[in-house]
Amino acid sequence: MTTHPLALGVTGAYLAMVDTVVPDFVEALYLVGSVAMGDFRPPLSDVNFVAVSQARPGRGEVAALAEAHAGLARGWPAPALDGVYLTWDDLRAGPLAVPNGPCVRQGRFFASGCHDRHPLTWSVLRASAVTIRGPLCAGTGLWRGTTHLERWALASVDERRRAGLGPDTADATLLTANGVERFVLGMCRLHYVLATGIVPSKSDAGLYGLITFQPEWHRIIDEALRIRREPGAECLYATPGERGRDALAFLRLVADDARTLVVGPGGSGPG
């Protein structure tokens, strides 16, 4: 699979900056997310990364990394870098052992946070990471946790129901094309994870949704796929409000159905 040139461009610029301000700090750099899955779609997609070092950054290194990412965001406003800084021990211990640490969200560096420190990141690292620097993930003793991936996916379904499907946030978010794409395909992805134990790309998750759910839901799934893959094509809905109502109804359906895939309090899904 060929890595998208925009992803290579921003990661090359990132490494040049980081190597200048914190020499020898980033020992390995892996790309995950849509870049690793062959589903990178500018301008919707960020470049998701995992940077690995021997130790966590000290105070001076934190300041230098923050300045490097700020400079990168000025020079490369899109696509944005989005990811986490881990140590080799973190990589082997897994997300439950390291719930917080340095991270980058939409190009902005944070000294500590939980962003992307979840089983999905480790699953994609294991299955399809693009190695930009350092050894292949297969030789790093990478943490494995299929059961934890299932639990994370189910918790994410519940979180989206609480936070994203309320009457206020849903109405606002689902009136935008990006919100429809993110929520509809994101929920299809979570359902796929619970059904199979495998993390798909967003586009593959949408195709799975077309196969899995009744034809009455196909228009909203096709609309989410259109936004992701052919944003210039004609919208399948007459108004944003009509599209938002269908999206909200679909999200509620998927959330309810996803819970039926896990039996018992601890779950008994795939893996």
Score class of each variant (00 low, 15 high):
H118M: 06
H118Q: 15
T121H: 09
W122D: 04
S123C: 12
S123M: 06
V124H: 04
L125H: 09
R126C: 00
S128V: 01
S128C: 15
A129R: 08
A129I: 05
A129W: 04
A129C: 05
V130H: 02
T131V: 15
G134I: 02
L136S: 13
C137S: 11
C137Q: 07
G139Q: 10
G139A: 12
G141K: 09
G141R: 11
L142E: 09
L142S: 06
L142A: 04
W143L: 06
W143T: 06
R144Y: 00
R144D: 01
G145M: 11
T147H: 02
H148G: 00
H148F: 00
E150Y: 12
R151F: 01
R151T: 10
R151C: 01
W152I: 02
W152K: 05
L154S: 11
L154I: 07
L154R: 15
A155K: 08
A155D: 12
S156T: 11
V157N: 12
D158Y: 01
D158T: 08
R162L: 13
A163Q: 09
A163N: 07
L165S: 06
L165R: 06
L165D: 10
G166M: 07
G166K: 07
P167Y: 07
P167Q: 05
P167I: 04
T169K: 12
T169I: 10
A170I: 05
D171A: 15
D171W: 14
L175G: 09
T176D: 07
A177W: 10
N178K: 10
N178W: 04
G179E: 02
G179P: 04
V180L: 13
E181G: 01
E181R: 15
R182N: 10
F183D: 15
V184S: 09
V184K: 12
G186M: 04
M187N: 12
C188I: 09
R189M: 09
R189D: 02
L190Y: 11
H191V: 03
V193C: 02
V193Y: 01
L194E: 14
A195C: 05
